[in-house]
Structure formats: structure tokens, C-alpha cells
């Protein structure tokens, strides 16, 4: 019965530890600082994008693993499954939108052609 139920003994309350949280903070902050440092280094665009993406991804993973405490224990497995099912949707939403519009822009918005020559002031 709920009156005998001690919410503070719940595994999700008991799972947090100071050390893990501090580690999460340090890891995320260091990784994001590193990404910022890379942006000041005049790298070629693609190289920088790859570096920054890798560092940010690592920061996200460190937050998931250390702050959120996501693992495959009985308590957390369904959260993991839900996230696992959702990640492809994130990629699809952004990726396919970008793909569709890159095709659309090149076909329906010929910026450097007729328009620019006709009205050079518009986009300046």
C-alpha cells in the first residue's frame, strides 16, 4: 500500500552519486571547451565540422551516461529503448528535410542567374 511506501528508497533516487555528477560536468565542459577551441584554430570547414561534431557528440554521450545515468538495468532499459527508437527519427527529420530542400533550392531558386542580374540590390 502506498502509505508504507518510502519514495526516498526508490532506485531512481538512490542511483545518483556526487562523483559521477562532477565527472559528467567536467567531461561535458571540457569537451565543449575543446570544440570552442577548435573553432578558433582556422581549420578547413569540413575538418572543423567533423571535430566539433565529434566533441559535441561525446559531450552528449557523457551527459546521457553520467548525468542521466542511462544504462541497461531493469529500471532504465525502457528509457534507453525509447531513446534508441527516437534517434533515427531525429536523423530522418533533419537529414531528409535538408536533402529535400537542397534539391528544391537548386531547382526552384536560381539565385545567381536571372534574379541577381535583374535586381542586384535585393540581396545586398
Amino acid at each position: 500500500m502506498s502509505s508504507h511506501y518510502n519514495p526516498l528508497q526508490h532506485p531512481e533516487v538512490q542511483q545518483g552519486t556526487t562523483g559521477r555528477y562532477i565527472a559528467a560536468f567536467l567531461a561535458s565542459a571540457a569537451l565543449m571547451g575543446g570544440a570552442y577551441y577548435a573553432s578558433t584554430q582556422k581549420l578547413p570547414l569540413m575538418e572543423f565540422a567533423a571535430t566539433a561534431a565529434a566533441l559535441s557528440l561525446a559531450a552528449l554521450v557523457s551527459q546521457l551516461a553520467l548525468f542521466f545515468g542511462l544504462n541497461i538495468s531493469q529500471a532504465q532499459i525502457w528509457k534507453g529503448v525509447a531513446l534508441f527508437l527516437a534517434i533515427p527519427l531525429f536523423i530522418i527529420t533533419i537529414g531528409m528535410t535538408v536533402w529535400a530542400f537542397s534539391s528544391l533550392y537548386s531547382r526552384t531558386m536560381p539565385m545567381d542567374g536571372m534574379l541577381m542580374s535583374g535586381q542586384p540590390t535585393l540581396l545586398q
Binding site: 530522418i92 529535400a100 534539391s103 528544391l104 537548386s106 531547382r107 526552384t108
Partner: peptide
Amino acid sequence: GWVVWAHHFFTMGMGPEL
């Protein structure tokens, strides 16, 4: 069902590959 939405706007001018 999640990856097919653009068939609602075939006539909008996406390329043949899309």
C-alpha cells in the same frame, strides 16, 4: 510511414532522385 512524407508534394519540384 515515417520516411515517406514527401509523396504529398511530388508536384512541388523536388528532383527526380527525391
